[in-house]
C-alpha cells in the first residue's frame, strides 16, 4: 500500500515553485494545505497553519498569496505575523516565540514533490 500513501502526499512538480515564491497545495483528507516555497534554490515545506490559534488557521489572503509585500517573509494574512522562510520562526506579530510546523519534502528524480506526512 506504500504506493497509495505516497500518491496521497503528492504536492506538485518542483519547477512549479519559482525562486522566492510560495504556493499552497491541498492534500486529500487533510485540513491544512502544505506551503511549498523555494529560497536560495532549495525547497521548503510548511503547514499552512498559523500557530496563533489552536489547530492553526490558513495564512494566505488568496490562493498562493503567502508572502509579505516585499516577498521577504511568509506572512499570516490574519494579523500580519511574519515568519522566516527557511526556519519558520515568527519574527514579527502575534506569534512571536512560535514557529510554523515543518513538512519534510521528498523530491523524486523525476522532479515530483511529495510531503512526508
Amino acid at each position: 500500500m506504500s504506493g497509495t500513501l505516497v500518491a496521497q502526499g503528492y504536492l506538485c512538480r518542483a519547477e512549479e515553485v519559482a525562486e522566492g515564491a510560495a504556493r499552497g497545495f491541498a492534500l486529500t483528507g487533510r485540513r491544512h494545505k502544505v506551503i511549498v516555497l523555494r529560497k536560495g534554490g532549495r525547497l521548503y515545506g510548511w503547514l499552512d497553519a498559523c500557530p496563533h490559534y489552536d489547530g492553526g488557521t490558513p495564512m494566505a489572503w488568496k490562493s498562493d498569496a503567502y508572502l509579505n509585500g516585499a516577498g521577504t517573509h511568509l506572512a499570516c494574512h490574519s494579523h500580519g505575523a511574519h515568519f522566516d522562510m527557511t526556519t519558520g520562526v515568527c519574527t514579527l506579530g502575534p506569534c512571536l516565540g512560535q514557529a510554523l510546523t515543518r513538512v519534510e519534502l521528498h523530491v523524486t528524480t523525476a522532479g515530483e514533490v511529495f510531503a512526508a506526512i
Binding site: 495564512m59 494566505a60 489572503w61 498569496a65 509585500g69 499570516c76 494574512h77 490574519s78 494579523h79 500580519g80
Partner: peptide, 9 residues
C-alpha cells in the same frame, strides 16, 4: 470573516 493583505480580517 476573511483574511486580507491589510494585516487584519
Amino acid at each position: 470573516y476573511f483574511n486580507s493583505p491589510l494585516g487584519c480580517h
